[in-house]
Design a protein around this nucleic acid. Structure first.
Lengths: 183, 183, 183, 183
DNA sequence: GATGAATGAGTATTCATTCAT
DNA sequence: AATGAATGAATACTCATTCAT
């Protein structure tokens, strides 16, 4: 039984529901099915748990985008659609993690939060590259990458906050976003 | 002297620097030039201060957008540019407030955080309306509004986190965003 | 009401009974008649309380010895007797403090424990000076000072540990000690 | 391999460096080259280890003094000198143990600390007997025994705390102490 | 016997909030 | 209204001890 993973899962559940600060170590321990002490056999601090959650989830997303960029068999437009679809699916299937990622982002430069920072700089860069493959107009892709990254966050936030206002089915959402950024 | 305003200003300074949770009431009181006790004569709780900050700042932004919508003398594209320019200027002149707004957003549905929620639903709606005035293609403007709102947030975040990666001058940024959303 | 003093007294009682480590802040607070929080309005930490206790008590003893040294109207032998008598009286009237001083002495060089260290170096020096006034044999008084200081501690310890084995009345004890060190 | 002894030695090292309370069982285990669990196969509790350390070290000292008392071939003065010399040598060669003995003495009457208590009552008694053999003045040797015992402790403490203030070589120290107590 | 992962009671410290002055 | 001392609930983290392997 992988304790570190077990604790991570308990923490995701609790933190996404109550926020990091209201998620006490003892509640996390309860949700993970271990005792408080055990948490500290696998993590140096409560914050390290949050850092680890980001590490795992961010890596997952960055990896996916990387693989789409390397695979050049499909046109960029198609690859963007695939990424957006996968993202929205993940939001719908694991809303707690999405909520946690959006909510618990920390500006802080503590090492525990480095993965968050790297994620926030890497994703826009990669998205920018994808866009510039699609619209080879020679422009600096930075701004468009950031805009797309932000747009995705904006839509995700809305889906989590007020799902009924974004009733559009995933497919249509993806179409619209794609049209905006790769018209 | 408007005590409530005085306290709000102290709180903005302190919270934007240290985050809401590390901003103790006594530090806020110090920054505001009042005593802890006085805070509680004007606010029911520490969270109410945060709520009030959002109320003021969000209202300011919503009002501006409203006025742009009502004034139909200029074409939508021009009005969008004006809004984006004003926004970026505000970020550059009051980065602490921008940081605070981005960082302290709460999903929670406590009444104290209602202004945040309303802001997060009102702004995309208004932005959507502006966009649909510009591209009267009959499509539901919801998604585009959310995307633009998110894009603005994404750029703002980056400007605060890593200003040197978004060296583009305000004008160019505005141009690019406008081109994306009202091509 | 002098809170710092009030807390010091509560702490002396509790620490002398249970030892520093078993004396929890909440028990100290209870004994002092204040709440835990109040302790931290007057002391930075639990250890600072111990430091303060030593500061007060050590100062008291050092001062007394100083005054005896300055007053040269009586012969050294008489002054030594007066010091010993005063010391034994204090042990009998405030055994908890004596116990605490003997028990909680810390080798540690944390600033909180500086008063203890200074006490442990100052007293032997002063006692040595007193002895050398009495037996002007030109010898270095260091060793005799330390020996006397230690002898006093030894007797005190025994009086606290097993009072019945040192049944000798104070006067006789003082006589014997004086005879040993100023024969 | 005598596990109990092995653990005792690890504990002496760790406790003398960090103090009993900061010496965690796991650090002791590490220093002893066994695992935490093993400690509890040989000791009922952490405190029992401390008790055992005192038992061994105190016994060693008491035995030595006993043997000096029984061997009446040398005059008492010479025997006192031999004891003091041996003691100071031991302090210089094993300062950690001396430090531990001085620092971790417990007034508590828990059985674990009985050896300390017995030591603190036995040694002065034996020292008193030695002194009374040397100065057969018929006086009760109790006080002088306690005084000598305390004096030895006082000098030892100083040697450990501030070795440079007691630069006198061992021989001279012994001479002075002997002169004081057996003039 | 040896191990070391799991346990959870125990504790110093913080800080929002109150209320007597 | 303004103050700030007093409050005590709340919480992260430690570590002696146990016990299944």
């Amino acid at each position: 039984m992988d304790r570190r993973e077990q604790i991570r899962q308990g923490a995701v559940k609790v933190i996404s529901e109550r926020g990091f600060h209201e998620a006490t170590t003892s509640i996390i321990a309860g949700a993970a099915g271990v005792s408080v002490g055990t948490i500290y056999n696998y993590f140096r601090s409560k914050e390290e748990i949050l850092g680890y959650i980001f590490e795992v989830e961010c890596q997952r997303r960055v990896n996916h985008l990387h693989s789409l960029l390397e695979d050049e068999s499909d046109p960029p437009r198609e690859r963007l659609r695939r990424f957006l679809t996968a993202h929205l699916d993940r939001v719908r299937s694991e809303p707690e993690i999405a909520r946690l990622l959006l909510q618990e982002f920390r500006f802080s430069d503590r090492t525990e939060f480095l993965p968050m920072r790297r994620f926030a700089s890497e994703m826009p860069r990669l998205l920018g590259r994808l866009l510039s493959q699609g619209a080879a107009d020679g422009k600096d892709p930075t701004v468009r990458g950031l805009a797309l990254f932000g747009a995705i966050q904006g839509l995700t936030t809305q889906m989590l906050l007020a799902p009924d206002t974004v009733e559009t089915e995933s497919g249509a959402l993806v179409d619209e976003l794609t049209d905006i950024f790769l018209p």
